[in-house]
């Protein structure tokens, strides 16, 4: 069994000939370790032992693509699939906790997510394709930390926090401090993301989501915008979060929007000015998904559209 697995994995083909001095496929395969622990405690212990040598595996939709045709470079895998509780969405009095293995499809279908975090819900529905949404997870999206990760701007707009565990204990990091660069975060090689914690938004909270991509499915975003606005009883803006993806090295919140809009009624805001502000404060680059100029132009317009959408919803 072992032998045949090795053979079928060897793409060079080794039929016939003398291979005494050659590379042996067996070495190749024993080099890569695979763990699928059944508890978080066990998982962090394994991780501690191997440090940065292990890749932590959730849905695999990013990792297996990144290492396509060079999986041998990965020294080992820590698969989270057998750990209980990581696939749950739990509602508490003041917050919802989402397990890192919750898939995009589950976020898309969950009534709780739909009710409390519609922006996150719609962003999940815009990820890739049905196949990718069925496999891909919220934890994977966060840890991959692509500037274009579709769930990241919504998580930022809802003030999410991430619980990281290691053998030394756990810490809770706010989303705003988590991402440090393109595909870089503050998570250490001995830590696992075990929970995504989002405060319940409360009444009179409205959201708007916009993903701009060059086609309608299977597309890496050119730009995303998650706008979440909380009003008080007097219809005054209590809080407003304008968060964007794919326009900077990390997902970003444009905090100046908060400064300018807080304490005002939405109809008293100058939407064009806020759109302009967003366009100015982002730091996009030119790439195959859009030029920097295009991203600034579009950021302005979708910000204006999002404000109009929320003004309309709030007026109902």
């Amino acid at each position: 069994m072992k032998e045949s697995a090795a053979r079928s994995g060897n793409r060079q083909g080794t039929s016939g000939g003398d291979f005494k001095d050659c590379f042996r496929p067996e070495d190749y395969f024993t080099a890569s370790k695979y763990f699928a622990p059944e508890s978080l405690k066990e998982a962090v212990e394994i991780l501690e032992g191997y440090g940065g040598d292990l890749k932590v595996l959730a849905g695999g939709t990013d990792l297996l693509v990144e290492y396509y045709e060079r999986l041998y470079e990965v020294k080992g895998w820590l698969d989270l699939k057998n750990i209980p509780g990581l696939k749950e969405i739990k509602v508490f009095e003041d917050r919802i906790e989402i397990g890192p293995l919750v898939t995009h499809t589950e976020l898309e279908k969950s009534e709780n997510i739909k009710e409390y975090y519609p922006v996150l819900n719609r962003a999940a529905a815009d990820v890739g394709s049905p196949q990718i949404r069925n496999r891909g997870t919220i934890g994977g999206n966060i840890i991959t930390a692509s500037p274009a990760g579709d769930l990241l701007a919504p998580l930022m707009a809802y003030d999410a926090e991430f619980k990281l565990v290691s053998t030394r204990g756990e810490r809770i990091v706010p989303v705003g401090q988590f991402f440090t660069g393109p595909k870089r975060t503050i998570i250490s090689s001995n830590e696992i993301l075990s929970r995504i914690i989002i405060p319940l938004p409360g009444e009179r909270t409205y959201g708007s989501w916009c993903k701009v991509g060059k086609r309608k499915a299977l597309i890496i975003s050119s730009i995303t915008l998650a706008l979440v606005v909380k009003f008080n009883k007097e219809r005054v803006i209590k809080d407003i979060r304008a968060c964007l993806g794919a326009v900077a090295p990390t997902p970003v919140e444009i905090k100046e929007v908060r400064k300018r809009a807080r304490g005002k009624r939405i109809e008293d805001l100058n939407f064009s000015e806020l759109g302009e502000l967003v366009a100015e404060r982002i730091s996009p680059i030119d790439d195959i998904r859009g030029t920097a100029e295009y991203r600034r132009d579009v950021a302005r317009e979708i910000m204006i559209n999002a404000l109009e959408e929320i003004a309309e919803k709030a007026a109902e």
Binding site: K214, R215, K216, A217, I220
Partner: peptide, 26 residues
């Protein structure tokens, strides 16, 4: 959609992730 993006002789989108064709939804 279909566009080969070349910078200084290098194709920046040599795969179907970057070289786009319409999907069923489009």
């Amino acid at each position: 959609m279909e566009e080969q993006v070349i910078r200084e002789g290098i194709t920046l989108n040599p795969d179907l992730t970057g070289y786009l064709v319409p999907t069923a939804l489009d």
